[in-house]
Design a protein around this nucleic acid. Structure first.
Lengths: 139, 139
DNA sequence: TCATCACCTGACGTCAGGTGTAGATTGATG
DNA sequence: CATCAATCTACACCTGACGTCAGGTGATGA
């Protein structure tokens, strides 16, 4: 027998890293920043992770794409994984989620405008190209 | 007379920096990366800029907010300011714009999904809070 | 002419977000 | 038991995007 009972159904850092698409060094780094802890640590010191670790890494990546830095992520990541106790806790979580929602909405708007601009530029380029080709091929 | 004819109507780096909301060192840095060149350079070495420099800085900021790094921005910034010459040039620009369009569309989708997730979490929190308050106030 | 800016360049510092590497240990396997 | 891959810790190093500092030059009003 290798892995003892405490580690049943858990994966090591290598598998987690591969499944999450990050390096094991990155996982160490995130752990130092308090973003992610192993579910268990065997005698030898090996880290063992469960499936929620993978979900956390995916959530971290999503928040990064939204422009949060790792410090900010560390402050909010637990909201997505622990059930806040009590009314005050829930209200706090709600507040933060609503802030994220507002930021996300603003980003969506800006990105939408950018795409419109791109669309217009693409249309213009297509027109100009068509004209050039018309010059070359018409009568 | 100070500034000679070549510099009429132009601003120096300090004014540009202030109006664009960046430091003059940032402008130097961008220049080294090929993002932005002064319209003129006096004998003494002073840089003089026109209004399009300001527009470029604004466009750079916008592209940064979209998550492009300065290297990527350097590769595309001219698309917004020079009219590409010839069919090949226009086709090249079109190609790049379409790549951006595809990336932007993907980002929009992902952000949309993230917002849906946020919405669901917010709804859940609201429900939990309402229940807690119900327990406290009902019968 | 002189003071006083604004500006120049170059070298170095800083901070985030990692990556590389070394040397030691662990754990699975023949 | 030997071996070898996987992992451990700790420290150094890297890039991007600037900021800081020093020593020197240009421009301009009194």
């Amino acid at each position: 027998m290798g892995m003892d009972d405490a580690a049943a159904g858990l994966m090591q850092i290598g598998e987690l890293a591969e499944r999450a698409g990050v390096s094991h060094r990155t996982i160490h780094y995130y752990e130092r920043l308090g973003l992610l802890a192993p579910a268990a640590r065997q005698g030898g010191g090996y880290r063992y992770y469960d499936e929620t670790a993978l979900k956390r890494l995916e959530k971290i990546a999503a928040l990064k794409r939204l422009g949060l830095d790792l410090g900010e992520i560390a402050q909010v990541i637990d909201l997505y994984f622990v059930d806040p106790i009590g009314l005050r806790g829930k209200e706090k979580v709600l507040e933060i989620l609503e802030r994220h929602q507002a930021e996300t909405t603003a980003r969506l708007r800006e990105l939408g405008r950018f795409r419109e601009e791109l669309d217009a530029n693409i249309a213009r380029m297509r027109r100009l190209i068509a004209e050039l080709q018309g010059d070359a091929t018409a009568v």
